[in-house]
Computed example of a mutant assay.
Amino acid sequence: MSWIDGFGPLSDGARTRLCALPHLEMPKGAVLFRAGDRAQGFVVVLEGRVEVHLSGPSGREILLYSVAPGQSCVQTTLGLMADEPYAGEAFTATDVRAVMIPRRSFARLMDEEQAFRAFVLTALGRRMRDVTRLLEQVAFGRIESRLAAALIDMAKDGLVTATQAELAARIGSAREVVTRRLDAFQRAGWVETDRGAVRLIDLSALAKASLS
């Protein structure tokens, strides 16, 4: 089975153009793109794995997603479709064999080949779902741990006397976010909330959350 078959039924002309593209051999640790670069083409990974990272101003880095054979790079797709520069960086996590479909060829395929367009949009939707889930997990875990630690630290005889705005200021978040997290804690049976106060019910659960 050819790598082209993964795109679904294509016209003979499209298959011929894609078959003529050279294969790229990249060693582990090679840079595919950096933040601020412009997408030059649609990379199809044939063998190996590419990792896409995002770095913050503090230098903290997060792995957004990996691209294995049959998967897509959402940043490249968005870069080609919206002409936006890359926000992250991509490196080969292993030795990689790939094919790059040039920007003009990609645009032509999107215009003329329904199966290719469906493949790209479906893959984009799936990848965006995965990235959204990852960001939700990271954001929830960080805020949850900070809030749990703050509640334990501020409690006197199991009671925290503070408004949600004060708790938000304490952990460097927004009041609305703290409200949602406290609601989640209450549903889990960890706390009971009242106006201007939080009573700690399950200290062991909160202690475990503070370390996550």
Score class of each variant (00 low, 15 high):
Ser2Cys: 08
Ser55Ile: 10
Tyr65Asn: 06
Gly13Asp: 12
Leu78Ala: 10
Leu54Met: 07
His53Asp: 14
Ile171Tyr: 05
Gly6Lys: 04
Ser11Phe: 05
Pro9Gly: 06
Asp83Phe: 03
Ile101Asp: 08
Asp95Ser: 09
Gly141Thr: 04
Asp37Arg: 03
Cys73Ala: 13
Arg104Trp: 07
Met110Leu: 12
Gly141Arg: 01
Asp37Gly: 04
Pro102Trp: 03
Thr92Leu: 08
Met110Gln: 04
Thr92Val: 08
Leu200Val: 04
Ile4Pro: 01
Ala188Met: 06
Val67Trp: 01
Thr16Phe: 06
Leu135His: 08
Phe42Cys: 14
Val45Met: 07
Pro85Lys: 10
Gly189Cys: 12
Val160Lys: 02
Leu80Gln: 06
Ile101Gly: 05
Thr94Glu: 11
Gln71Pro: 00
Val191Leu: 00
Met26Lys: 07
Ala139Ile: 11
Leu124Gln: 02
Thr163Gln: 10
Ala20Lys: 06
Ala205Thr: 13
Thr163Asn: 11
Gly59Lys: 10
Ser2Arg: 04
Gly125Thr: 01
Val191Asp: 00
Ala87His: 09
Arg103His: 11
Ala174Pro: 02
Gly6Met: 07
Ser105Cys: 14
Ala184Lys: 09
Val177Trp: 00
Val178Gln: 05
Ala174Gln: 14
Val178His: 04
Phe140Arg: 11
His53Phe: 15
Gln164Val: 14
Ser2Ile: 06
Thr163Cys: 12
Pro9His: 04
Ile62Lys: 07
Thr122Ala: 14
Ser11Gln: 09
Val131Gly: 05
Met128Val: 15
Leu203Gln: 13
Leu203Pro: 06
Ile101Asn: 02
Glu84Asp: 13
Phe91Gln: 10
Phe119His: 10
Asp157Ser: 15
Asp183Ile: 02
Leu124Arg: 01
Leu80Trp: 02
Val43Glu: 09
Gly158Ser: 15
Arg170Met: 09
Arg142Asn: 07
Asp83Ile: 01
Thr179Cys: 09
Val138Thr: 14
Arg146Thr: 01
Glu84Phe: 11
Leu54Glu: 11
Leu109Tyr: 05
Ser145Thr: 08
Thr77Ile: 15
His53Met: 15
Asp83Tyr: 02
Gly88Arg: 13
Met110Tyr: 01
